[in-house]
Design a protein around this nucleic acid. Structure first.
Length: 577
DNA sequence: GCCGTTTTCGGCCCGACTGTTTTCAGTCG
């Protein structure tokens, strides 16, 4: 059983929770939380680092002690301290900490005064009116707690980026119409373009005295108001999405943007630098000895601590601050850098448009080439192509290319990678194509070793070009399959083939850190729409966002190549292994 | 428990909102 970074982070969080409940030193608790954040966002697996003889205590926030605990967790899945803490704490009590409105102090009181250590017990106590009598609690707290427990299970979810976009547009239109509002910007993880967002952080610039709180909560989609003040208001929309509004003056706009864009880890790192320079950064500005010296623009905030501006997509404290300091920030890929698209479907399999409609739509999206990659026949549900139908499809593409202007169609296939790693069409059929996109669509539940071997074997095929949606995840439906991505990346490099960043809103697959890892290993990424409809090329910008989070530059993106160079790259992989 | 261009000891981000308080603790982001 491999221990993943997420497992280690979860253990550190649990230790932090339990220590907090036992009223340990708050900075000790914080050290565990910092370590959990470092580990969970670290681009490489701890197991891998250790195997390669790396020093864990070189990681930020990890010292000798925590490095030892990581080793312990990797070896046996737990550590002595967690075992001891669990043994001396009532079972399940950390669940209470994750209920909105409850923190360590209140959970401690609930347990020691009333013996409550599970959400169910808490709900009964609230309904029986036993909580209001506790010191520090009252009737209002008791009511809120009951509501929070009831909603506890359904919350704690994240939303695919594309799904919240509709809310964003409606909210922006509504807010811009408010009196006194000069600017509305969505900050938070939405601005950092994370693949999922937990809530929306909306920054509103308004003149002093603009009384907005009532206006904000009057938005028609608002189902519940969590808190409401002159500068900060939190609501829950009807579908459960939480939205936090912050109102600032124009002079603080830059500082507020930095602050509310985050990430938290990035901001903490900025503040530490500021501290060393005897500066204080908050959401209103940068201060020296109480005097404001910057904050109207984001650039002024970064400049105050000697840094150039850092693109929002990089603000995760994964090395961007050091890169900025050293003048080594990447020149991130942009949507306009994409010259083509290497994954699209037509009515020949499960697409909804013909060849020509797709070609015209791709050209309208600013692309100069488009690979037609319909499914292969084992994917029966998608009406996949067998060898005979593929031959006819190839001829149709050739004929169409002769009359198309401003766009070239490439002949491809999204061929199924069978459970044993063979490809779903004979070599002779694949040899006639410009590129072969391989994908796993079945047996996503194979054990890690087997799944990895399956993909490595497929990559060994002489005609294999690009591995599509490598992790196979679908938001809200299924998680990523078990894979040794390090090996797959190394193998792709050795075999000279490529990996896909699939842009479908429910996929966004590969992950950002995998893009970075692949790129560092010298493997080019195809940012591919997987379009099934003429409108789907708009998804490319989602993929570009994810690629930017993965530190990709245009030079690392396969479909940023002009067609002649692309053909050369593909030819050098096709059939030469 | 971590960390060091003040420091190997003594710090550790900082402000808003709520509810129960009569000046502030707890929680959140």
């Amino acid at each position: 059983m491999t221990r993943r970074n997420a497992d280690i982070a979860a253990i550190f969080e649990e230790i932090a929770d339990l220590l907090e409940l036992q009223q340990a030193n708050t900075f000790r608790v914080r050290a565990y939380r910092n370590a959990a954040r470092t580990v969970s966002t670290w681009p490489r697996e701890m197991a891998e680092l250790v195997a390669q003889g790396g020093d864990l205590d070189d990681l930020p926030g990890i010292g000798k002690d925590l490095a030892g605990k990581i080793g312990e967790i990797l070896a046996r899945g737990s550590c002595d301290q967690l075992d001891r803490l669990r043994a001396t704490s009532p079972p399940g009590i950390t669940d209470l900490l994750h209920i909105s409105g409850l923190g360590p102090k209140r959970v401690h009181a609930l347990y020691h005064e009333l013996g409550i250590h599970t959400p169910t017990q808490l709900l009964s106590a609230a309904r029986e009116g036993r909580i209001r009598a506790l010191p520090g609690f009252g009737v209002a707290s008791e009511r809120r707690i009951a509501e929070a427990v009831a909603g506890h299970l359904e919350r704690a979810r994240r939303w695919p980026l594309a799904r919240v976009s509709a809310h964003v547009e409606a909210l922006q239109a509504y807010l811009r119409a408010a009196p006194g509002v000069s600017r509305v910007v969505v900050a938070g993880s939405f601005r950092r373009r994370r693949d999922t967002v937990g809530d929306l952080d909306i920054l509103i610039v308004a003149g002093a005295g603009a009384a907005l709180a009532g206006y904000l909560t009057a938005f028609e989609e608002v189902a519940d108001v969590l808190s409401q003040g002159p500068t900060r208001t939190s609501v829950v929309l009807k579908d459960g999405l939480q939205v936090d509004f912050r109102v600032v003056g124009a002079a603080s706009f830059g500082a507020a943007m930095v602050y509310f864009t985050g990430s938290k880890a990035h901001n903490l790192a900025l503040r530490r630098i500021a501290q060393a320079r005897k500066l204080k950064i908050n959401e209103y500005g940068v201060y020296r000895d109480g005097k404001r010296i910057a904050g109207d623009t984001e650039a002024s905030v970064y400049a105050s601590i000697g840094l150039p501006g850092i693109p929002p997509e990089l603000r995760e404290n994964r090395g961007e601050i050091e890169a900025a300091r050293d003048g080594k920030l990447p020149k991130l890929v942009e949507r306009k850098d994409l010259r083509g698209d290497l994954h699209a479907h037509t009515t020949a399999s499960d697409g909804r448009e013909g060849l020509e409609q797709m070609a015209v739509a791709a050209r309208a999206a600013g692309l100069s080439y488009l690979a037609i990659t319909d499914h292969s026949h084992s994917l029966g549900i998608a009406h996949g192509l067998d060898e005979r139908r593929l031959a006819a499809h190839i001829e149709a593409i050739d004929r169409l290319n002769e009359k198309l202007d401003g766009i070239v169609l490439l002949k491809g296939i999204e061929v199924d990678i069978l459970a044993d790693g063979r490809l779903d069409l004979p070599d002779a059929a694949l040899a006639r194509l410009d590129l072969v996109v391989g994908a796993v669509h079945s047996r996503l539940d194979l054990p890690r070793e087997q799944q990895t071997a399956r993909i490595l074997r497929a990559m060994d095929h002489p005609h294999f070009s690009i591995l599509a949606h490598p992790n196979g995840r679908l938001f809200g439906t299924r998680g990523p399959c078990e894979l040794d991505m390090d090996r797959i990346i190394r193998h792709a490099h050795e075999r000279g083939c490529f990996l896909e960043l699939n842009c479908q809103p429910d996929r966004l697959d590969m992950f950002d850190f995998q893009c970075r890892q692949a790129s560092n290993a010298g493997v080019m990424i195809a940012i591919s729409s997987d379009a099934h409809h003429r409108n789907d090329f708009r998804w490319l910008s989602l993929g570009v966002d994810q690629a930017r989070r993965g530190w990709l530059e245009a030079g690392g993106v396969l479909n940023a190549l002009p067609l002649p160079q692309l053909r050369k790259r593909l030819a050098s992989t096709m059939g030469t292994r």
